[in-house]
Deep mutational scan, measured.
Amino acid sequence: AQASVVANQLIPINTRLTLVMMRSEVVTPVGIPAEDIPALVSMQVNRAVPLGTTLMPDMVKGYA
């Protein structure tokens, strides 16, 4: 199954992502693919992302 990017902590709005904030997990619905984690580093989220939330393309500025 495809692993997705999941928030490893609460990520406040406009925060630049770092590796420690993200983990890969097989979840439904599928979000951003886990292999994109390196590309997500330093991108900003456009909303607060609670712990355990799957990151979707529309949550990350410049990803989609």
Rank of each mutant, 00 (worst) to 15 (best):
V45Q: 00
D58F: 10
S42H: 09
A64K: 03
M21R: 03
N46F: 07
A48E: 15
M59W: 14
A1Y: 13
I11G: 00
I32F: 03
A3D: 07
P38G: 10
A7S: 12
G52T: 02
L19T: 12
V6E: 02
V30T: 11
M59E: 03
T54V: 07
R16C: 04
S42P: 02
S42C: 05
L55E: 00
A7I: 06
N46C: 04
I13N: 11
P38W: 07
S4Y: 03
V49H: 02
I32R: 00
D58T: 10
I11E: 01
A1Q: 15
A3I: 13
M22Q: 00
V49G: 01
V27T: 11
T18R: 07
S42E: 10
A39G: 08
I37W: 03
A34V: 10
V30A: 15
P12Y: 06
R16N: 12
T28R: 07
A48I: 09
A48T: 09
I11N: 01
P50W: 05
L40Y: 02
A34Q: 14
E35P: 08
M21V: 04
V20W: 11
M56E: 11
I13T: 14
I11A: 01
T53Y: 10
V49L: 10
T28Q: 15
I13C: 07
D36M: 08
N8K: 06
M21P: 01
A39W: 07
V41A: 05
Q9N: 08
A64R: 03
Q44L: 09
D58G: 10
T28I: 15
R47Y: 12
T18I: 07
I32Y: 02
V5M: 02
I13K: 10
V30G: 09
V20T: 10
N46D: 11
P12A: 12
P38F: 11
S24G: 08
A7P: 01
N46M: 13
A64G: 10
L55S: 00
D58M: 09
A64M: 08
L40H: 00
L40G: 00
P12K: 10
N8P: 01
E35T: 15
T54S: 04
R47H: 13
V60L: 11
P33M: 07
T28E: 11
